[in-house]
Amino acid sequence: MIELKNLKKVFTKTSAGLGPINLKIKAGEWMTILGPSGSGKSTLLRLISGLEIQTEGEVVLSSPKNEISFVFQDAALLPWKSVLDNITLPLTLRGVPKLEAQSRAQPWIEKLKLSRFVSAHPHQLSGGLKMRVSIARALITEPKLLLLDEPFSALDEPIRIELGLELRELWKNLNPTVLLVTHSITEGIWLGDRVLVLSGQPGLSVLDQRIELGKDRSMAQRAHPEFLGLVNQCYELLRGP
């Protein structure tokens, strides 16, 4: 479980960054965070992960810090390492022997359809493949909390949809708590179980809504009136007055 108590981040004395935010996220929940640029969506993830220190308030995590995985917008792969070495990095840094790390990587390589690319280097991969490697690296430690900071923003729409669905399937089996920051209202609502909408400066919660689409997701759900209604509601909130 994650609990944010009066969480606030101020970057400079002139412009407020985020909050105060009060929020409880249940273990295993997938929450999507929407908001205009500069509303502090990414800052919220960084505060939760401990990469940033809050100005005020508190982040209470039920899982230890080493059970958090982060997926960045640009995949953040080591260019001099092969796909396999990038995926096993979190394990080898923890002292897991190389062979054991490689065998533990195998199921993730298969699940993320990377078998043909294990010895390739990042510069030889497309944007979609790079993101698959990044996701495999994030999941290899079987984290309790998965933080996704606009992971699909640089990808084409069909690849976004495909990867999003695959990630949702992996989440169903592994069941970590997921926080997904995205600019795409449709994608965020389609993939999440709950949506948090932040206002502009300062980033405050203006909507915290459960998404009732069930565990499994399909393209057909994107045409449901309920889905479209929530998309419109979020759009109106993000568009502002």
Partner: peptide
């Protein structure tokens, strides 16, 4: 060094030497 990579190493509990 790319800030995201440095953050990634921090999240993976890498020591300063690592």
């Amino acid at each position: 060094t790319d800030r995201n990579l440095v953050d990634l190493f921090r999240l993976m509990d890498a020591s300063p030497l690592q």
